[in-house]
Design a protein around this nucleic acid. Structure first.
Lengths: 340, 340
DNA sequence: CGGCGTAGTGCAATCGATTGCTAACCGCGG
DNA sequence: CCGCGGTTAGCAATCGATTGCACTACGCCG
């Protein structure tokens, strides 16, 4: 059906090998310049499309990268994915994207199916803290981690600086006069949640503020989960005047919990989110949040992957840290007189 | 490096062909049951992963489907993509996803690169009204259209019933007492925008209401674009008390335009969106909108694609239409006395 | 005029799985 | 004892591109 190298070769009275070389920019210099243009023209006219499966079989490189995402419908990820796609495709690579739903079994399964497709490498945005696959996987293929650095192993990674982001947020709240600041943290199994909670504690201590009993955790990065947790936190600590949530969904859940306790945001309670997902400027109240450069995280991780794939000499371990910034909107306000 | 059929065969003193048959459920019955289990066990222990590129080369089927999306960061799409992925992967297929940014050139390019990867079919969610590629493409590969039926050609498609959705919205507004209802339509090149505008006109006429001069169009599905358009519409037609926007972004832009003209939503102007993207319940005011079943659109289109790929006999042309529903929230209200 | 270097092509093996055909072998009936 | 049907398994070709090696022809130098 579709034209092959052999078809072109026959039409031109050449050998397939010559046609192959003429069409490959890296080897075209081995072929007479006139022949190259003849071949190019013929390929064009026969609308030749190289069969990447055949090429991949021969070279055992698929020009394909597995991209493992916990949940694409979390608005944090589409931006990242766009960054990955744009950068990879510019280099002739195709991302193979899969969701895991934050389920370790699903993850094992999709990783296996991507290996069957012979991906050349993996970009992992799943942020479980422990990760049995990782050791084995990274010994066989290039792996780039997104939003996570592992405790045990050194791997190439791209992430936004959580410590810095959290400090921006806490400084902002302290600057507004808040002293009793709570934290609604992410799931305990999540390395991101863990890191942000630690950064929170560290920063609070640096300000000489109490931290220990205010840290709280939920079991999913969801609005519902935060609703419960924040409610408990607020009931247990009525003196809290501000809460830093570990991401935007948790911030929204926190605001809803506050409302259910008749505490308005920002008048009675300031709330800061994290990530600055799309539309967070439009919710009520517009969310003050830490913006992470989503597209850049994606494109940087793709760039890192490409350098691992293309550099002949072993690339030195690179861990890219991007800097988040604080976006002040309507969900934070100066602390008012403590409630009666 | 990785184990191959031959490796297993040698270890077991068998021929690769036998191993292949033993491992393939469709041909396992040709092999002695005992041999099958021996092979299975060996494959397991050597952690054999079949090379899908070799299989694909031989069978010229990649078990891969190209999924072409205009813009993944449009929150409408992640839900659809999830539906596609879940359904395809359950059947052993892998989606290859690409963005086009609503650019026809980019689209041509990504389609070419997907064809080089020998995708078995295409799911197209790009909704340009005219589409030169489509004719050629659909003659060579199975194609399923999302959110679009073409004027010229009959192709398998999955979409939500725009006419029905628009009617729900208009009926709602009319029921609230509105008579002068405007429409902020999508880009003219978009088939979705076109269809919704037509449905709007039709429904308004059915209600005996004026329509002609209120229809308006913008050049992108963006908040900014709607801001300008809605402003012009409102300035030109100050009597308008309600606006139906062709999607949620346009609705948000419309609300902002109204604000800039000192018209509050919903008190002075009711606004209805379309799609019910995530977080539309949280914006200010919570958006009344037509909900389309995003996940189902994705999974139905994947199902349709699978039936095209797997059924031996030609599948009869199927055009799936899903039914949207109206979600009433805070952006619409009963019409008040006409403004002074 | 002989020999050597080089540019340009052709040859053929290779990647790993699949599959139509063939071959070996068994049991059984005539 | 022969032959036949049926079950298992091996053989070998095939998919299409890539690439190390061999070969030809030509130009150039000594």
């Amino acid at each position: 059906m579709a034209a092959t190298l052999k078809d072109i070769a026959e039409k031109l009275g050449l050998h397939p090998a010559t046609v192959s070389r003429a069409l490959n920019p890296r080897t075209a210099h081995l072929v007479n310049a006139g022949t190259v243009t003849r071949v190019r023209r013929a390929a064009e006219s026969m609308s030749y499309v190289p069969n990447s499966m055949a090429a991949g079989l021969r070279t055992s490189r698929s020009h394909t990268v597995g991209v493992v995402i916990p949940d694409l419908t979390n608005p944090l990820f589409p931006g990242i994915v766009r960054g990955i796609q744009d950068t990879l495709s510019r280099a002739g690579y195709t991302p193979l994207m899969v969701n895991t739903d934050n389920d370790a079994d699903v993850e094992a399964q999709v990783v296996a199916s991507l290996r069957a497709r012979r991906v050349d490498g993996f970009i992992l945005a799943t942020a479980r803290r422990e990760h049995p696959l990782l050791v084995e996987l990274s010994s066989k293929l290039p792996v780039v981690l997104i939003n996570r650095v592992t405790d045990s192993m050194q791997l190439p990674s791209v992430s936004a600086d959580n410590q810095h982001g959290i400090r921006l947020a806490v400084d902002h709240l302290v600057g507004l006069g808040h002293r009793e600041i709570g934290h609604v943290g992410g799931p305990v199994w999540s390395s991101t949640g863990h890191e942000r909670a630690q950064s929170f504690a560290r920063t609070m201590r640096a300000h000489g503020l109490s931290t220990a009993r205010r840290i709280n955790a939920v079991d999913a990065w969801s609005i519902e989960s935060a609703r419960d947790a924040a409610r408990r936190l607020l009931v247990a600590n009525p003196g809290i005047t501000a809460i830093l949530a570990a991401n935007d969904q948790l911030a929204i859940g926190t605001i809803e919990a506050a409302r259910s306790l008749k505490r308005r945001c920002p008048q009675d309670l300031s709330v800061v989110g994290y990530n600055d997902m799309p539309f967070m400027d439009l919710v009520d109240p517009p969310l003050t949040t830490v913006r992470v450069p989503q597209y850049d995280i994606g494109s940087e991780s793709a760039r890192l992957m490409l350098s691992l794939l293309l550099e002949q000499e072993a690339t030195p371990l690179k861990q890219v840290r991007l800097t988040p910034e604080l976006v002040v909107r309507g969900s934070t306000a100066r602390r008012r007189a403590p409630r009666a």
